[in-house]
Design a protein around this nucleic acid. Structure first.
Length: 484
DNA sequence: ATCGACGTAT
């Protein structure tokens, strides 16, 4: 199936060029006035890397008197932001060992740290510290835990926790907690439940705010239910909550993906009339919409226009245009955009590489794709599961089975976890080239590492056997080690 | 201190 949409009437280019003038200088949001904590320690200024953080911590614990708890708290928070999760845990343990007192804010940061590591189980195991030390629970702690559960796809657990908190009156859910639950539900396809929560909030004490409405609108847009999204937009307007740039970006994205360019124009005019000006995301959405219709030249035109208006393209702008060229089979042009991007001092990320690799694979230029795969680690980046899936698919497509085997082995050693798509790509590849013994070995190894058949591989296998019953003998009986 | 909008593979 091609991803290029059939174009609807669209004179979006002259429209975009004509309809607004950006304010001369963009308004900067508040600068970092927050976070000034403690006596002479400005954690944000002092800590630029892990070493800084650990050194500062070691200095702090030797100070007499000890720095205030907010200083420790800010340090831990800074480290969580820098993704030094393991270091946070060891510093927290050190604090416990040194009998440095802790408070609810420090604990909620450590809990958040575990959630960011996708270890919500460890996060929950900190709750006894609250109880033993008599530290009160707060909404933030529970909101963090709910977010952690969603992050690990434990939707039921998240909902159960939320319901219990409300029913047992353990804490009063605020807009942010409700928003977290609704965001988690909507991102996992439960738009209906998200909407019922909105209706509940409208009747309760915690009235929905702009964030909540934006979550609901985005959920409907992702479901391609633009009518419902727009009726929520009208509801919020009626209630006196003005839509913001996020609201408009969600809606414009939904409309672009449906090819409804006339409505896109209406919304663009509407937002500008409200003095809400398109930002880099808005332009990226428009550029992506055009690219997916195969109109990369128009997309480039929009890019020139945004630069004229003082909105700088970012790495996503370039990725979108690169993918646009790849969709039309013009991978060399995509490559040129890639190089231009580097000239503009924007370092390619794993997305940029994956898009190019996909482009080369589509053109069956797997050698170039392999070369790029090698370049990724040289640049200090890590290929993702998607990157490997793409290249494995490309290699099997041209029958380079030996290379595919090597790449799969590399994937296992480098670390990104094979997904259901990886498995079906490999099984499908072996099958298509009648490599039944390899297919068999692969399936056994797959089961040994704890994977069983899933919706994707099972469907594929059923089809294979239906068309070619003799393959049945090649398929091993698998007993996944993860199951009982 | 906690929440929202854009890009890659099947």
């Amino acid at each position: 199936m091609t991803r290029i949409l059939v174009s609807k009437s669209n004179a979006i280019i002259p429209f975009i060029s004509s309809f607004y003038i950006l304010p001369s200088s963009s308004i900067r949001p508040y600068s970092s006035l927050k976070g000034k904590v403690g006596v002479r320690i400005n954690v944000e200024n002092e800590v630029k890397c892990l070493d800084d953080a650990v050194n500062l911590f070691n200095r702090m614990v030797r100070m007499k008197p000890l720095p205030s708890l907010p200083v420790f708290c800010t340090l831990l928070k800074t480290m969580v932001n820098m993704k030094h999760y393991y270091a946070v845990i060891s510093l927290f343990r050190e604090m416990r060992k040194l009998d440095i007192p802790i408070n609810e804010f420090i604990l909620s940061n450590v809990i958040n740290n575990y959630c960011m590591m996708h270890r919500v189980d460890c996060a929950f195991s900190l709750l006894p510290i609250h109880l033993k030390s008599g530290i009160p629970f707060n909404v933030v702690t529970f909101t963090t835990l709910i977010r952690g559960l969603f992050a690990e796809n434990k939707v039921t657990d998240a909902v159960v926790l939320f319901k219990n908190l409300v029913r047992e009156k353990i804490c009063e859910p605020n807009e942010i907690m409700c928003g977290t639950v609704m965001n988690g539900l909507s991102k996992r396809g439960h738009t209906e439940k998200t909407l019922s929560l909105l209706r509940l909030m409208e009747q309760g004490n915690t009235k929905p705010n702009i964030y909540i409405y934006n979550v609901v609108i985005d959920a409907f847009c992702k479901d391609r239910n633009l009518d419902a999204a727009i009726s929520i937009l009208n509801e919020m307007k009626q209630k006196g909550i003005p839509p913001d740039i996020v609201t408009y970006n969600s809606l414009i994205d939904g409309l672009c993906k449906l090819g409804q360019w006339e409505k896109v124009k209406t919304l663009l005019s509407e937002m500008v009339n409200l003095n809400i000006y398109p930002n880099v995301l808005t332009f990226n959405i428009l550029i992506d919409g055009l690219c997916k219709e195969g109109k990369v030249e128009d997309a480039e035109e929009v890019m020139r226009h945004m630069i004229e208006k003082g909105v700088e393209p970012n790495i996503i702008t370039y990725s979108v245009i690169m993918d646009g060229y790849c969709l039309r089979g013009q991978v060399d042009r995509a490559r040129r955009v890639f190089d231009i991007m580097i000239d503009k001092c924007i370092e390619p990320d794993i997305f940029s590489y994956s898009i190019l690799i996909n482009g080369y694979c589509k053109k069956k230029e797997v050698a170039k794709a392999m070369q790029l795969l090698g370049e990724i680690s040289q640049k200090g980046l890590k290929p993702e599961t998607v990157t490997y899936n793409t290249i494995l698919h490309g290699l099997f497509e041209v029958g380079r089975i030996g290379d595919a085997k090597r790449v799969y082995a590399e994937m296992l050693s480098v670390g990104p976890k094979p997904s259901i798509y990886t498995h079906s790509t490999v099984i499908d590849g072996y099958f298509r080239w009648s490599k039944f013994s390899e297919m068999r070995t692969f399936m056994v190894e797959m089961a040994d590492r704890g994977f069983s058949f899933d919706a994707s591989t099972a469907g594929f296998l059923v089809n294979v056997v239906r068309e070619n019953p003799s393959v049945l003998d090649m398929i091993p009986e698998l007993h996944s080690k993860n199951k009982y």
